[in-house]
Structure formats: structure tokens, C-alpha cells
């Protein structure tokens, strides 16, 4: 699973990772299974930011997201031998994280979230630019996402927010690509009326994206 180009995995740059940069994730996992006490923490270092982003977006709550990511990494640590080489390690990790999030959502049913809590969470945990317009948009998008059923939300987080291909999202979610597409389509259809008023408040107005224009103009 390849991260989208505009968001390169950052931990590669850390001083510690530098020496290990040439070691693949699969090698590290093999070392962990071989008893190497440091190998798994290197995997965590490489991927924790993406896993955090996925969990925070899917759950919409930093405390829940922290618990979900911790559970997921612990579970991956213990069950590393369940990894089958037919998928990328990142796909396997994403799957564990997404499942941990979906489990949490199912167990908790829908917890109403107070506005001030949303604001607090957004201020605490997102590095928002100081422009208030962008900030408002981010918060409204985050709030609107919570209105979606969890399967649609998970699909939109992976495809539209994190920039993964439909195929990658499908293997993370363990469903056919067509299912991911239709979950995305239904999710976007629900979000459109909620978010349409934001279109003119940002520079996103020129979004008659290539695909949209192409579809409209035949």
C-alpha cells in the first residue's frame, strides 16, 4: 500500500530511523518475531502518524483514537505471526487500526458529542493553520462526518481524507472495491447538503474538479 505522494511518511527522517531506513517493514516484523526487542518500536515510529490520523478521523475523538491506536499496536505486537506476506505491512496495520475503531463505534453506539467538546478536541489535536476560515471548515467537516454510518465514514476517511486508492481502501476494509465506491458515493451524497454552504467561504470554489467538469460536459 503506497501512501499518497503529497503526504510522505515522515518518520523516515528521524535520526534513529535513518540508519534503518533501508530495512523494510516486513524485515522488521520478521525481526520482531525473531525476538528483536527494538524492531516493533521502529515499525510503530514509522507508521504512528498515519494510524493516528486514520483513527482520529474515523472516531472523531482524541481520547477514543488514542485508545484505539494503542489497542491496535498492542494487538499487532502480539499477533505479528498472523501477518501473511500477501499484503503490505501497512495494509495489515491499517486493517487492525480500522477494525479497532469500528469495534469501538459498535460497542459505544452513538455518543452525542457536545459542540464545545468538538471545539476543544479540534484545538487540542489538529495543527490547524491560523486562518479562521479554514479552521471553521475543518471543524464543520469533522462534525458532519460523525453523522455518517460508520462504514461510510471509514471509507471516506481512507479515500477522500487520507488519499488512498479505492483498491487499497478495499483491502484495508476487507470488502470489494465496488463496495468502497458505493459507500463513498452514499457518504458524499449525505455530506453535500450539510457542507454546501461552506463552498463559498473558502477558496475551494474552483473545485469544479477535472472529473466533475468532464462528467458535466460529457
Amino acid at each position: 500500500m503506497t501512501p499518497p505522494p503529497e503526504q510522505p511518511a515522515t518518520p523516515e527522517h528521524s535520526a534513529v530511523a535513518g540508519a534503518r531506513a533501508s530495512v523494510t517493514d516486513a524485515d522488521l516484523l520478521a525481526r520482531h518475531i525473531g525476538g528483536d526487542p527494538q524492531a516493533f518500536s521502529e515499525i510503530v515510529k514509522r507508521h504512528r502518524d498515519r494510524m493516528w490520523a486514520v483513527a482520529l478521523r474515523t472516531l472523531g475523538d482524541p481520547d477514543e483514537a488514542a485508545d484505539a491506536v494503542q489497542d491496535a499496536f498492542m494487538s499487532a505486537y502480539r499477533k505479528a505471526d498472523s501477518f501473511r506476506g500477501d499484503a503490505a505491512v501497512t495494509t495489515w496495520l491499517h486493517r487492525i487500526v480500522v477494525n479497532a475503531c469500528l469495534d469501538r463505534m459498535r460497542r459505544k453506539s452513538v455518543r452525542p458529542v457536545a459542540d464545545d467538546e468538538l471545539i476543544e478536541a479540534a484545538e487540542r489535536d489538529t495543527q490547524l493553520p491560523d486562518q479562521t476560515a479554514e479552521r471553521e471548515v475543518s471543524m464543520e467537516v469533522t462534525a458532519a462526518l460523525k453523522l455518517l454510518p460508520s462504514d461510510q465514514r471509514a471509507a471516506l476517511v481512507l479515500v477522500d481524507m487520507m488519499g488512498y486508492s479505492v483498491e487499497d481502501a478495499a483491502s484495508v476494509l476487507g470488502v470489494p472495491a465496488g463496495t468502497v465506491k458505493s459507500r463513498c458515493a452514499r457518504g458524499r451524497a449525505k455530506l453535500a447538503p450539510i457542507l454546501s454552504h461552506l463552498r463559498n467561504r473558502t477558496d475551494l470554489t474552483r473545485v469544479s474538479s477535472a472529473k466533475g467538469a468532464e462528467l458535466r460536459d460529457g
Binding site: 493516528w52 481524507m161 454546501s196 461552506l198
Partner: peptide, 17 residues
Amino acid sequence: DLAAVREMLAAVPVPAM
């Protein structure tokens, strides 16, 4: 509007852990 939804979702900043 639908295209704008995609753009807005993509524009939400990705926070570091």
C-alpha cells in the same frame, strides 16, 4: 457540491500523533 465534498475532506489537515 459533491466534488466540493471531496475537496473539503482532502483539505482537512492530517495531524501528527
